[in-house]
């Protein structure tokens, strides 16, 4: 069996087995669909709300991605400052840890009240706030663990700090950066959905979920969960693909 086919067929067959098991479990226990919807209930839910799924799915997606882009920009910048300056590291690190320790679920209502009415803004903001921490830390760590020999070799040739950052420090942190980005993707996704669920006149898949709840439409709620899982997987693998392109050399090291 060739390897691409294998890479598709094996996960696919496991998904099918999982769905069959789920269907069987619901049927066997004779659960009503308010207790647990079965996969066969989900298709009608998707079909009935297909317009909303597309529209809201897109909203959830762009807000998450925008929040992520912002956290990559800000996190990289912050990580750079912390990685290159000892004082900034010592000063900012406890602050960041403290900020990160606040459960973000409690920040969501605060932000929702703070910027009432600007739902897009709120959602992007939460996705950003929840996800920049691992990125900043990974960049800071990568930079501060740079071997001093590199700096000496390049500086003795007259290279500027920027050249050293661009040619060596940044590429060297890429494996850690992508590791952090994988965590950040998941976090940003949680942030977006929390805000969408909690905002009274929200949009996005999170909102579809909470309206399913209000209308006691359980198959719809499960369908949203599946759609979110699907989107999460897609986002995750986009990061994996980017990682292969930009930091593929790090993988070879172990192999």
């Amino acid at each position: 069996m060739n390897s691409t086919l294998r890479a598709i067929l094996i996960p696919l067959s496991f998904i099918i087995v999982f769905l069959l098991f789920w269907e069987w479990l619901v049927w066997f226990n004779n659960w009503p669909n308010y207790k647990m919807a079965s996969p066969s209930d989900l298709w009608p839910a998707f079909w009935t709300y297909k317009g909303l799924f597309l529209e809201y799915g897109w909203q959830t997606l762009w807000r998450t991605v925008l929040g992520l882009i912002l956290s990559v920009i800000f996190g990289t910048f912050l990580g750079m400052i912390m990685g290159l300056s000892r004082i900034a590291y010592e000063g900012l690190y406890p602050l960041l840890v403290g900020f990160n320790a606040i459960p973000k679920a409690t920040v969501v209502p605060v932000i929702a009240l703070l910027f009432v009415g600007s739902h897009d803004f709120n959602t992007v903001l939460i996705a950003f706030m929840i996800s920049f921490f691992p990125i900043a830390v990974s960049i800071a760590l990568g930079l501060s663990t740079l071997e001093p020999e590199y700096r000496d070799i390049l500086r003795s040739l007259g290279a500027s700090p920027f050249t050293i950052f661009w040619k060596i420090a940044l590429p060297k942190t890429l494996p850690e950066f992508f590791g952090a980005l994988k965590v950040a993707v998941t976090l940003a996704f949680i942030g977006t959905n929390l805000m969408e669920i909690i905002s009274p006149h929200g949009r996005g898949l999170g909102h579809l979920f909470s309206s399913g709840e209000q209308n006691a439409d359980y198959p719809l709620m499960f369908a949203v969960l599946i759609a979110l899982a699907f989107m999460g997987i897609v986002l995750y693998y986009v990061v994996v693909a980017l990682e292969r392109i930009f930091a593929g050399w790090a993988e070879r090291r172990e192999g």
Partner: peptide, 9 residues
Amino acid sequence: FQNPVLLEW
């Protein structure tokens, strides 16, 4: 130096 520090990429 003692550490050859070659860039892996």
